[in-house]
Simulated scan of single mutants.
Amino acid sequence: MTIPECPMCRSVAADQELERVQVWEDRLWRLTVSLASEVPGFAYLEPKRHIRFITDLDGAEAATFGAVMARCTRALKEATDTDIVYVYIFGDGVPHLHVHLAPHRAGDALNDQMIRGEIVEEKMPSGMTRIMSREFPALPVEQLRALAERIRSRLAR
């Protein structure tokens, strides 16, 4: 199903308006690269069918999502000679699922913070670094454990 007023559903016809160019597609997905970006290779992966949220993926789209993400991010990483491709999915704005794929290198325009506020880093015994926000402290462990159990229960169904 496509929605005529949805720019993503208009596909190639909307690419000029959205300042992007299609670089790949299959029967379910398409990948476009932005022509108006601060980051080389900034791209959008979107399903051809009108889907609003990632939770709406089903059938063949859900079954191929991981492989398609891996293929697209690998191509972006190699073409831009970067070490990592950030993946963002936002739920606001355009009412059609589109995954932002952002090749990143140190010193570029991207922000590598997931959380707002003054960042505090804590070295953990494992050698990993925990990144926290001073303004938004961690939630109580009991609350997070209870949530983890609710998620576990839903996935066990």
Rank of each mutant, 00 (worst) to 15 (best):
D26L: 02
V39Q: 04
K123C: 00
T32D: 07
V87I: 15
M8P: 00
D56A: 02
P40W: 03
P125C: 08
A63C: 00
D108F: 04
I115L: 13
L101C: 04
R52T: 12
G91L: 06
A43C: 02
A148V: 03
H96Y: 05
P137K: 03
L76I: 04
P137N: 04
C9P: 01
V94R: 06
G127A: 00
R74A: 15
A62I: 01
V99Q: 07
H104K: 09
L45I: 02
V12N: 11
D92F: 13
E17Q: 15
R116E: 12
D112V: 12
R105S: 08
P95G: 02
S126C: 06
R49H: 04
A102N: 10
T32R: 08
M8C: 11
A75S: 13
R157K: 13
L76F: 04
L110Q: 13
T80A: 10
R27S: 11
E46N: 09
Q22T: 14
S37A: 15
W24D: 10
I119E: 08
M128P: 00
S133H: 09
G127P: 02
P103I: 03
H98V: 06
Y88F: 15
D112E: 10
L101F: 03
M8Y: 13
T73C: 06
M114T: 06
S153Q: 13
D56R: 02
L101N: 03
D92N: 12
Y44M: 14
R134K: 13
R152D: 09
M69W: 07
R154A: 15
R157I: 07
S11M: 12
V68Y: 06
V94L: 12
G66H: 12
D15E: 15
P7K: 05
M124G: 00
V39N: 05
A106S: 09
R49Y: 01
A62S: 09
R49W: 00
E135W: 05
I89C: 11
G107W: 01
D26W: 02
A146D: 15
E61K: 03
E25F: 02
H100A: 11
R116W: 08
V23N: 08
A70T: 15
Q113P: 00
A79D: 05
A60I: 01
L31A: 09
P4E: 02
A13E: 11
F136I: 10
F53E: 12
A63D: 14
Q113H: 12
W29A: 07
I3A: 03
I131Y: 11
R130C: 06
A106T: 09
I51V: 13
V141Q: 11
L139C: 05
R134Y: 01
M132E: 10
E17K: 11
R71T: 13
P47G: 00
V33F: 09
L101T: 04
Q16E: 15
R157A: 11
R52H: 07
M69C: 09
V21L: 12
F90H: 12
R71Y: 12
A60S: 07
E142N: 09
C72I: 04
G117H: 07
R145P: 08
V33S: 10
I151G: 07
L110W: 00
R116T: 05
G107V: 01
I115K: 09
E118V: 04
R105D: 00
T82R: 11
D108A: 02
G59R: 03
C9W: 05
D26V: 01
I151M: 10
R10E: 07
I89K: 08
E118T: 14
L139D: 10
L147K: 11
L155W: 06
